[in-house]
């Protein structure tokens, strides 16, 4: 086992973590600010992937497909919030779980009707279909570097928006005391709708940009959803910073687990979660 191989796994882990962060950041915000447990969040990841695959077929361009799928996922998110999720804010978690689980079923059925149950894939665009050579035998695909770059850039944008802008202050204030935000004349309904739509768009984007490296298949949202809940719990509900660290931990644990302890691979992420929760029961940044 040489250092290059280790480095490649490290890069893979970081890249997977960054991708998970795109999905988990929306999940944690929606949970932390609006108090909504959104089981359908993984469905937006799937939606993004299917939209990208479908649009890439129509337009012949992955970039166009990704760019187009982003507003579509946001729109679907906004409509779902306005029509359904909005009725859940004053209800308990069981009602939320029931409704958003129902949404998963609807999304899956819609996917089957619209696009069938076959497994699809997008060919890697030739412009990025090359690898950075590390040693005689090892190299790293440049698309993964680009993907990590997009995710990292979005993480920085998200940080700046949340930490520095008035919109970000409203979002944080909403997580702390939403009635007081409304009592200051800020339209909390619209604010929540926008946050939900942005969360959906980020999850959709994660699905869309991962199409060249992972297959577009039924049920793809479910795995991501479960991992993202692990990320949210580790990071502390509502904390974007926590989601970032949690996503890194889970991305690395999952990747290294599969490589070094393949027999226990499905256990490693939960092992990490258990360890973190024993140390900090409410998560890293709760």
């Amino acid at each position: 086992m040489d250092v290059w191989f280790f480095l490649i796994q490290l890069l893979n882990g970081v890249q997977y973590g960054l991708l998970l962060f795109l999905v988990a950041s929306g999940l944690t915000l929606i949970f932390g600010i609006m108090g909504i447990i959104n089981l359908a969040h993984g469905a937006f990841y799937m939606l993004g992937a299917y939209l990208a695959w479908w649009l890439a077929g129509l337009t012949g361009s992955l970039v166009a497909a990704v760019v187009l799928s982003l507003p579509l996922a946001a729109l679907v998110g906004y409509v779902i919030e306005a029509l359904l999720v909005r009725t859940l804010y004053k209800r308990d978690h069981l009602d939320q779980v029931l409704l958003t689980y129902g949404l998963i079923l609807i999304f899956n059925e819609a996917q089957r009707i619209l696009w069938g149950n076959d497994v699809h894939g997008i060919a890697m665009p030739t412009a990025v279909n090359w690898s950075v050579r590390l040693t005689e035998t090892l190299s790293y695909p440049v698309y993964r570097v680009i993907l990590s770059g997009i995710c990292a850039a979005l993480a920085v944008v998200m940080y700046v928006v949340i930490a520095k802008t008035r919109f970000g202050m409203w979002v944080r204030a909403g997580a702390s005391n939403r009635d007081m935000v409304a009592a200051l004349g800020i339209n909390v309904k619209l604010l929540f709708g926008v946050v939900f739509a942005v969360g959906a768009a980020l999850a959709g984007l994660a699905g869309a940009i991962s199409t060249p490296i992972s297959s577009v298949a039924p049920g793809m949202g479910d795995t991501v959803l479960i991992l993202c809940f692990v990320v949210v719990v580790i990071g502390g509900v509502g904390s974007v910073k926590g989601a970032f660290l949690g996503a890194m931990l889970i991305g690395l644990a999952d990747t290294f687990g599969k490589v070094f302890v393949p027999d226990f691979a499905s256990f490693t992420v939960y092992g990490v979660m258990a360890a973190v929760l024993l140390w900090k029961p409410r998560g890293l940044f709760a």
């Binding site: 008035r166 202050m169 944080r172 204030a173 009592a183 339209n187």
Partner: peptide
């Protein structure tokens, strides 16, 4: 509530309604 408030009203509630995750500066700017 937010629409009523925007008619030109400001409300200082019992209990003060602080945000635990915002600084003093942010409370004012937001």
């Amino acid at each position: 509530t937010s629409a009523v408030i925007r008619q030109g009203i400001a409300y200082v509630p019992e209990g003060r309604g602080m945000f635990h995750n915002l600084t003093v500066r942010e409370h004012l700017l937001m």
